[in-house]
Computed example of a mutant assay.
Amino acid sequence: MKLKTILIIGLAGVAGYVLGSRAGRAPYEELAEGAKKAWNSPEVKKAVREAKRDLKRAGRKITR
């Protein structure tokens, strides 16, 4: 079962690469720019800080 899952993921990656290379660089650049804007937005930065804080707290509770 594990081999089948790995094979499916690998084939999906190859298919994505082929389709992406046919579309050209412009769609990739557009997607990358949107991802950068989203990652650098104040809302996402706040959510990341809160998630880090919560994970630290959870880790402290587990190690006690």
Rank of each mutant, 00 (worst) to 15 (best):
V18N: 01
G20S: 07
G13P: 05
V18E: 04
R49K: 12
R25M: 13
K4Q: 10
G16M: 13
K61W: 00
V44W: 08
G24Y: 01
L11I: 15
L19Q: 05
G34T: 02
A15F: 15
K36P: 01
S41L: 00
K61N: 03
A26I: 08
E29F: 08
A38H: 06
G59L: 15
L7Y: 07
I8D: 03
Y28G: 04
K61G: 05
K52T: 05
A38N: 06
E50G: 05
A15W: 09
P27I: 09
T63F: 11
A23Y: 11
G10A: 14
A38E: 12
K46L: 00
A51L: 13
P42E: 10
A47Y: 02
K4M: 12
K56M: 14
R57N: 13
L19K: 04
K36Q: 11
L3V: 12
G59N: 14
K36V: 01
V14D: 05
S41Q: 01
L11S: 10
R64L: 11
K52C: 09
I62V: 15
G10P: 01
L55D: 07
T63Q: 15
I8V: 14
A15E: 01
G10R: 03
G34R: 10
G20D: 04
Y17F: 13
P27H: 07
K2D: 10
